[in-house]
């Protein structure tokens, strides 16, 4: 895993330093860029005139100290920028995950139990549709329908303009508001997170549904389930105690994939809803050609993704004792 993380830093570094597109030109603007002295001073200030391997070594050294460099646009350390935005993204992803699981898993079990029925076919088409639909498009339609036509949900941001953020403990507004005992703020934060979380949950919920369905189907074909049925055990208890538990291993593995879905979706969904998280930051810095920021974001996201996948592997081994970790 460490080797993988090192490789990630190399990719992030190489991508942003070897290919064309002069970050200095983007940061300084055309006017300042026309003065060679300014350009030279700028390059020296940011170490951009050193040979690439040296730049990489310096970069790695900084990384070890938690230093991702200074964003050329915000003029803040990228790590600080990220830290400010992680709670927002985490809160959004958390609610999306809850919605996706609460909807996807039960519907998947239902589809498997009623295999071949109208319901199963409908759910299959629905889940395929969920995967085929661009989340940014659903987001725009959701804003049009719920915020503009029905006027029952706010369209952007984490809180209404007149509401102050709760005192920061976890950085999750809904949790912090509850901890502070501030119920109106909690409701306002919840009100703001629901719509983007629903939109973000759509593809993940679809993946979970399909996965749960096939996992449960696979288990239902086993002899011990037939035996349990032959013994006359109630169907629900077979489903919960035998089938679902056995299917759980494969459902857990898909959470790694789910996280990738959520992270990828977050870039687009956060852009649509102006949700001030890592995704919006990534989109903005990409558009601004803010090389340091893009490097930092991709690095951060990739490392989180790798670590979570590793954790999922461990969890998998814990749930299923037959798995031996190499």
């Amino acid at each position: 895993m460490l080797a993988l993380c090192l490789g990630i830093t190399l990719i992030a570094f190489v991508l942003t330093h070897v290919v064309p597109g002069d970050p200095v030109a983007a940061a300084l603007g055309p006017k300042a860029y026309s003065y060679p002295t300014i350009v030279k001073a700028y390059r020296e200030a940011y170490g951009l005139n050193e040979p690439l391997p040296v730049q990489y070594a310096v970069y790695l050294g900084h990384l070890l100290h938690g230093d991702l460099g200074v964003s050329l646009i915000t003029q803040q350390p990228v790590a600080t920028d990220l830290l400010e935005r992680i709670p927002a993204s985490f809160e959004l992803a958390l609610y999306a995950m809850i919605i996706a699981t609460a909807v996807g898993v039960p519907l998947g079990v239902l589809a498997a139990v009623r295999r071949g029925s109208r319901l199963d076919q409908g759910l299959t088409i629905g889940s395929l549709g969920g995967l085929a639909t661009p989340s940014f498009w659903v987001g725009i339609l959701a804003i049009y329908f719920f915020s503009y036509v029905l006027r029952i949900a706010p369209s952007t941001g984490r809180l209404s303009p007149e509401v102050f953020p709760p005192p920061q403990i976890t950085g999750l507004y809904t949790v912090d508001a509850l901890l502070a005992g501030d119920f109106p703020t909690f409701l306002d934060a919840l009100h703001h997170v629901i719509l983007p979380a629903l939109v973000l949950a759509l593809p993940s919920g679809a993946v979970l549904l399909r996965f749960t369905r096939s996992a449960v189907l696979e288990v239902l074909n086993n002899d011990y389930v037939t035996a349990a049925r032959a013994k006359g055990l109630p169907r629900l208890s077979i489903l919960l105690r035998y089938t679902f538990r056995a299917a759980l291993t494969s459902i857990v593995t898909v959470t790694g994939l789910l996280l990738a879905n959520l992270m990828a979706g977050a870039v687009l969904v956060e852009s649509v809803f102006a949700w001030p998280g890592v995704g919006l930051y990534a989109a903005k810095s990409a558009l601004d050609l803010d090389i340091t920021a893009i490097t930092g974001v991709s690095l951060f996201v990739a490392v989180v993704y790798t670590v979570v996948n590793f954790a999922v592997d461990l969890l998998y081994a814990w749930i299923d004792p037959r798995v031996v970790l190499a």
């Binding site: 990719i11 991508l15 597109g21 990828a264 090389i291 991709s298 996201v301 993704y305």
Partner: peptide
């Protein structure tokens, strides 16, 4: 396979965004 591992470590859209931005939109 290790090289593909590296690419899989990035969510597709994030890496694609970085690349597209660097090459110029």
């Amino acid at each position: 396979m290790r090289i593909t591992d590296l690419f899989f470590a990035f969510p597709a859209i994030v890496l694609a965004m970085a690349i597209a931005a660097i090459l110029g939109p």
